[in-house]
Simulated scan of single mutants.
Amino acid sequence: MNKLTIAAALACSLALTGCVNSLSGNTYSRSEARQVQQVQYGIVQSATPVVIEGTNTIVGAGTGAVVGGVVGSNVGGGKGKTLATVLGAVAGGLAGKSAEEALTQTQGQEVTVRLDSGNTISVVQEVADGPVFRAGDRVRVLNGSGGARVTY
């Protein structure tokens, strides 16, 4: 039963980290569909690689705490078992939080664009599902729905 609990907790954790939204310029959320966006054109001045930090939700810490508590409950007996369960849950929660953040961290680009209007802007977006920009690229900048994106 304990192995089944651990397997279920890990499966839930992996399934939920698969639901992380993409931050690329080519991915739209459901609420962004059919929304008007302002379009501007420009030339990429620079494209700097960046790291976009991972998510830090209760999923990783909660899953880690459950797994750590189950593992700890299999150590010792009496008060020692209780202490091992609590320590296992705390250590598992911390480990789960760190694991979630590391697993959901992504590569991105800070794209600086000189717009045809003469203004210069910078947009950070994920590159996993989208294009990688280079200085001199002619691009579109879409503004709307509380954010901006750079695309060809």
Rank of each mutant, 00 (worst) to 15 (best):
9 A>K: 00
12 C>T: 07
14 L>V: 15
14 L>A: 15
15 A>G: 12
15 A>E: 06
15 A>H: 06
17 T>Q: 14
18 G>H: 08
18 G>Q: 09
19 C>I: 09
19 C>G: 11
20 V>R: 12
20 V>N: 12
21 N>L: 13
21 N>R: 15
21 N>W: 12
22 S>T: 11
23 L>K: 11
23 L>R: 10
25 G>Q: 02
26 N>P: 09
27 T>M: 13
29 S>M: 09
29 S>R: 11
30 R>E: 14
32 E>V: 02
35 Q>T: 13
36 V>W: 09
38 Q>K: 10
42 G>L: 04
42 G>F: 05
42 G>I: 05
42 G>W: 03
43 I>R: 11
43 I>C: 06
47 A>S: 15
51 V>D: 01
52 I>D: 03
53 E>N: 13
53 E>F: 06
55 T>V: 10
57 T>W: 06
58 I>A: 14
58 I>R: 05
61 A>G: 04
62 G>E: 04
63 T>F: 03
66 V>I: 15
68 G>L: 01
73 S>T: 01
74 N>D: 08
76 G>A: 11
82 T>F: 10
83 L>V: 15
85 T>S: 12
85 T>G: 10
88 G>I: 00
92 G>P: 02
93 G>D: 04
93 G>R: 05
95 A>K: 02
97 K>A: 09
97 K>G: 03
98 S>T: 10
98 S>V: 10
101 E>A: 12
103 L>S: 06
103 L>I: 12
106 T>S: 11
107 Q>S: 15
107 Q>C: 10
107 Q>M: 14
109 Q>R: 07
110 E>M: 11
113 V>C: 09
113 V>G: 06
115 L>V: 08
115 L>P: 07
118 G>I: 05
123 V>N: 00
126 E>L: 07
127 V>M: 08
127 V>I: 15
128 A>T: 13
129 D>R: 14
129 D>W: 13
129 D>L: 15
129 D>V: 08
130 G>F: 01
131 P>F: 09
131 P>K: 11
133 F>E: 00
134 R>G: 07
136 G>E: 05
139 V>K: 01
139 V>P: 03
141 V>R: 01
142 L>D: 04
143 N>G: 10
143 N>I: 10
143 N>P: 03
144 G>S: 09
145 S>T: 14
145 S>Y: 12
149 R>I: 04
150 V>Y: 01
151 T>W: 00
